[in-house]
């Protein structure tokens, strides 16, 4: 007999509802929904006067494997790779179905889109440098993040950092990616397979950058890889960033630390050449226009000076 014989529907909690766990008896009051995806819904809750995030699903398997991932993130000392895990339990609904849930630290922040819009694209360098360090650590632990996308990233304050908030797609390297989103999936763009390896995440990272320039995305055409190149070339004015995106799409960089080094280098170079890592072409244009202004002035002064000499010569005659 299969236990899932009677179909269990996805569960929705009401605002203000109090959720008590079957095993640990801890209570959580629902404040609001934070988001819902293919395998469950995340709620903002209050427990013991503290804000926490609670993820519930009808699928025991996905909740369990996410808990496994979060646990393995906690086991390292020092900096944590993901939100910290607080509780794992079941909620029993009125009709007797048990819905597994887990409770994690609530990560407060703004979306990457919003942050970039408010503060400018030059922030991408520092945000990506931080994120690639986390990615490198994750890859070192034998995982691949999998579902790297805008919606799974938040910019937190104090310190300002780009952090991931949902580990649902995190997959052991060498296995098939557990969860993905088409726009960020390299197989969808015919640029590779769905095997979990660091480069899978790096491709998705490139798409995150591209998405900043195309907030509502774009449609696939018959030659997807070429389309991505074209989109990157049209929108990204900053040379270093554009090149990076192209490298990552082509799978030319194989580790997150390589990306990190590249970003740090590019930033350093932009400093050496006199400008903040702003948009390369814009600053080049600015230089041009400055030069353009300089030339007429020199021309004018030459004319003025020579005509002066002419008058002096006339006067002397």
């Amino acid at each position: 007999m299969m236990t899932q014989a009677s179909k269990k529907l996805e569960i929705k909690f009401r605002r203000g509802q109090i959720i008590q766990g079957k095993w640990h008896k801890k209570s959580y009051q629902i404040i609001r929904e934070l988001g819902s995806g293919a395998v469950g819904t995340v709620y903002l809750c209050v427990s013991d006067g503290r804000k926490v995030a609670l993820k519930v699903s009808s699928q025991m398997s996905s909740i369990s494997s996410e808990v496994n991932v979060l646990k393995s993130f906690q086991s390292v000392q020092g900096k944590r790779l993901g939100p910290s895990l607080i509780d794992v339990d079941d909620f029993v609904s009125k009709d007797g179905h048990a819905y597994p849930f887990y409770v994690m630290e609530y990560v407060e922040g703004v979306s990457l889109h919003e942050f970039i819009q408010r503060n400018g694209k030059e922030w991408l360098f520092s945000l990506l440098v931080g994120l690639t360090r986390d990615l490198e650590e994750l890859h070192q632990k034998g995982y691949v993040f999998g579902d790297l996308k805008m919606e799974n990233l938040l910019v937190t304050r104090n310190p300002i950092r780009l952090r991931w908030v949902d580990v649902g797609g995190t997959t052991l390297q060498g296995r098939a990616i557990k969860e993905y989103t088409e726009f960020y999936d390299r197989a969808y763009w015919e640029c590779g397979d769905r095997k979990a390896e660091p480069r899978y995440d790096l491709f998705a990272l490139a798409m995150v950058v591209l998405r900043i320039f195309y907030p509502s995305g774009f449609e696939k055409t018959s030659s997807p890889a070429r389309l991505l190149h074209q989109k990157a070339n049209t929108a990204i004015k900053n040379d270093a960033l554009r090149k990076l995106v192209l490298y990552l799409i082509q799978g030319k960089m194989s580790t997150a630390s390589e990306v990190r080094t590249y970003l740090l280098d590019a930033y350093q170079k932009s400093h050496d050449s006199g400008g903040v890592a702003h948009t390369g072409q814009v600053s080049r244009q600015r230089q041009n226009s400055q030069q353009g202004e300089i030339y007429p002035i020199t021309e004018a002064s030459i004319i003025f000076f020579s005509s002066g000499l002419f008058f002096v010569w006339l006067f002397l005659l």
């Binding site: 025991m60 398997s61 369990s64 494997s65 808990v67 496994n68 646990k71 794992v88 079941d90 597994p100």
Partner: peptide, 12 residues
């Protein structure tokens, strides 16, 4: 829930 993790690892 604490014991499920390992079993689910097997299923995975």
């Amino acid at each position: 829930p604490d014991q499920r993790g390992e079993v689910m690892e097997v299923v995975d």
